[in-house]
Design a protein around this nucleic acid. Structure first.
Length: 475
DNA sequence: TGAAATGTTGGGGCG
DNA sequence: ACGCCCCAACATTTC
């Protein structure tokens, strides 16, 4: 076995937790002093480089992980391969453990490191941990990857899942030079746009566990009934915790199943299917890596998208004149997050009413979401746009007014994020341009001044989208 | 996890 | 009592 004195590296990536971390448990058992490492590789091209909101979260998550490791987390910044060359020379490490990654760019980095280790006869081990099922594991009878969600999830749930792992006890740490986290500049300074983030979120493994148990105690039972509602808070809000691996999908799966014993099972099943979508998206990106930026369905390469800087800006700033869209976009800007239903509504509005490419919307989400995740982002945008797997048919166009009436019946969500409409009554708040003049003046609203008129009329936008779709069908 | 257009049915008002 | 029309309510088709 390994020389007792040679350190064992645990390469943390998006698995910033101690419990149920197979790579960490293996590294801890390996014998040598543990060298926990995180690398910030900012040379990543375009879509693979961390967005602004994610950076804010990562800072908190690393701070929390370092505390759990009693200040022993080693931080390095630069090209991954270069850092390992140096670190392996410095420390004479004998082994390197990490959780296997499944995104295109990350896999390349991982392969570079694997080669490096092979050259130096260092034991490199990839472990599971990011997903319930590794992407290769769930296949159709023909051996192909699934492209339809329902049969995918049915097959995925039948697989055997390992047991949840306890956090290993860690005593013997290796020493090595580390950057100061504050020098990485992950937090915004001028301007500090993260005030709403700090009020809304606590990154880190402890907070992730609290969020999970809080969700199970308070929301799971009614999840099926209330999912989609915007005025109450049916969401687990676990997305960013899951993205950074502060909690594993297996921990979530087991906790929810356990809590549900004896109950109807409806809430649990419906919530776990969201976890299923996460798995489904991850395996789609794994098998079809080009879908990070290109449509899965080829005809969409010729889709007649529009280009409109002013429409895009209105959407980004939450000034489209459709309260439900604008409320969601403001929530995103202020807190780095919005609920799934809201994401569908704003994505449908951008790609269908405005005919702006889904990639442009995905870019904005990438920079503004604390849970920005390459696989989820690409697959879900393509799902809405109609170019993806098991996608919504293109003619499925959300009516933002009906969605608003259905999922925010009293307008509470709108009022929360659009203070300028605060005084408007519940009946008129979904479509202020149709409100009687008296309602508007009572609420001190002047359309076009205090709140915009709709940038496009719904029926016109709908018709224009249907025409564009017709062209794609012909081509 | 859509919405709109179109079709069908049946109760009730009315001459 | 009867036929006619209107229209809400629901179902089906279409985009």
């Amino acid at each position: 076995m390994a020389d007792e004195k040679r350190p064992v590296i645990m390469w943390f990536r998006r698995d910033l937790r101690l419990s149920d971390n197979p790579a960490l448990s293996a590294a801890a058992k390996a014998g040598g002093p543990l060298l926990p490492l995180f690398i910030l590789d900012d040379d990543a091209p375009g879509r693979f480089r961390l967005g602004g909101a994610s950076r804010w979260w990562l800072h908190g998550s690393l701070r929390s992980l370092d505390e759990s490791l009693e200040g022993n987390l080693i931080l390095r910044r630069g090209k991954t391969a270069d850092i390992f060359k140096k670190l392996l020379d410095e420390t004479n490490a004998c082994a390197l453990h990490t959780a296997a990654a499944y995104e295109p760019y990350e896999r390349d980095l991982e392969d570079d490191v694997a080669r490096l280790c092979k050259d130096r006869e260092i034991d490199f081990q990839r472990h599971e941990g990011r997903l319930l099922n590794p992407p290769e594991a769930v296949r159709t009878n023909d051996g192909d990857p699934y492209q339809v969600f329902t049969p995918y999830w049915k097959a995925a749930k039948r697989k055997h899942f390992r047991d949840v792992l306890r956090a290993p006890s860690l005593k013997d740490f290796a020493k090595a030079g580390s950057d100061d986290l504050d020098d990485w500049g992950l937090l915004p300074t001028k301007p500090d746009w993260a005030g709403g983030f700090r009020e809304t979120w606590t990154p880190g493994e402890d907070a992730a566990k609290k969020a999970l148990s809080g969700f199970i105690d308070d929301k799971l039972l009614d999840y099926e009934k209330l999912r989609g509602r915007l005025d109450c808070e049916p969401s687990s809000r676990l997305s960013a915790h899951l993205h950074f691996g502060e909690v594993s999908p297996l921990q979530v799966y087991r906790a929810v199943r356990h809590a549900d014993e004896g109950a109807s099972g409806k809430g649990a099943e419906s919530f776990l299917s969201e976890l299923g979508w996460r798995e489904f998206c991850a395996q789609l990106l794994f098998h079809f890596p080009h879908t990070a930026t290109e449509p899965l369905k080829a005809p969409f390469e010729d889709f007649p998208w529009r280009e409109s800087e002013s429409d895009l800006t209105a959407w980004q700033k939450g000034e489209t004149g459709y309260p439900i869209v604008d409320a969601a976009m403001r929530q995103l800007w202020e807190t780095g997050w919005m609920p799934n239903r809201a994401r569908m509504i704003v994505a449908s509005f951008l790609t269908k009413h405005l005919l702006i490419p889904w990639q442009v919307g995905a870019d904005w989400f990438w920079d503004t979401l604390v849970d920005a995740d390459l696989a989820n982002n690409a697959s879900n945008w393509q799902w809405v746009a109609g170019s993806g797997a098991d996608a919504a048919p293109y003619f499925r166009i959300f009516n933002p007014i009906l969605q608003s009436e259905k999922f925010d019946p009293d307008g509470d969500y709108i009022r929360r994020w659009l203070p300028e409409l605060k005084a408007l009554n519940s009946k008129d708040i979904h479509a202020p341009w149709e409100a009687p003049a008296s309602s508007l003046s009572e609420a001190s609203i002047e359309l076009g001044t205090t709140y915009p008129k709709p940038i496009i009329e719904h029926s016109k936008g709908r018709q224009r989208a249907l025409d564009a779709y017709g062209k794609v069908q012909k081509g």
